[in-house]
């Protein structure tokens, strides 16, 4: 009788162990999936930020008014911080639109856009025609488990979106 009980207890323990191990494997797999989604979104946001900043710089390169804009930026009369800045120079908007377009093409959205003077122009020999574009973008991580939670409760949380900033220089 005692021996039979021991056998049954042993079977129960091994079943519990098996069940625990199965849950562990399942949780590990789901966790690995979340980690992959997080790192993939980080890489995508970095690419989108770099591409958006480059697009702004390319737009400035094609804009004949960019030289005058660089002088305005050096004099700190503007930072092209749109849409907050109401009296920004006309050359700011096309650069921002170009950044937004390219960010969207890479599955991201521009959350902050700034233009500024080149660091060389803060030295003893400032010159016109050099601008630095700084763009911050956001990409939704699309986490397999937390997607619904992110959409409803925490749309801008760091866990739900990947944010990246990049700069590009023109001139």
């Amino acid at each position: 009788m005692l021996s039979r009980r021991r056998h049954l207890r042993g079977r129960g323990a091994s079943s519990l162990l098996l069940l625990g191990a199965s849950w562990l494997v399942l949780a590990g797999g789901l966790g690995a999936g979340e980690v992959v989604a997080v790192t993939a979104a980080d890489a995508r946001s970095e690419q989108a930020a770099a591409a958006a900043a480059h697009a702004a710089a390319a737009e400035l390169a094609a804009d004949p008014g960019a030289g005058a804009l660089s002088v305005e930026l050096q004099a700190a009369r503007t930072a092209c911080h749109l849409p907050e800045e109401t009296a920004a120079p006309a050359a700011c908007a096309p650069a921002r639109v170009a950044a937004q377009r390219v960010a969207r093409a890479n599955g991201a959205g521009v959350v902050d856009f700034l233009l500024g003077p080149d660091p060389r122009d803060r030295g003893p020999e400032p010159a016109p025609g050099r601008i630095v574009a700084v763009v911050t973008v956001e990409v939704e991580r699309g986490l397999p488990l937390l997607r619904r939670l992110c959409a409803r409760h925490r749309p801008g949380a760091a866990l739900c979106v990947a944010r990246a900033t990049a700069a590009a220089r023109w001139g």
């Binding site: 591409a51 697009a55 390169a61 390219v102």
Partner: peptide, 8 residues
């Protein structure tokens, strides 16, 4: 896929 704007 990655998209960028062509430089002039």
């Amino acid at each position: 896929a990655a998209t960028m704007r062509e430089e002039p």
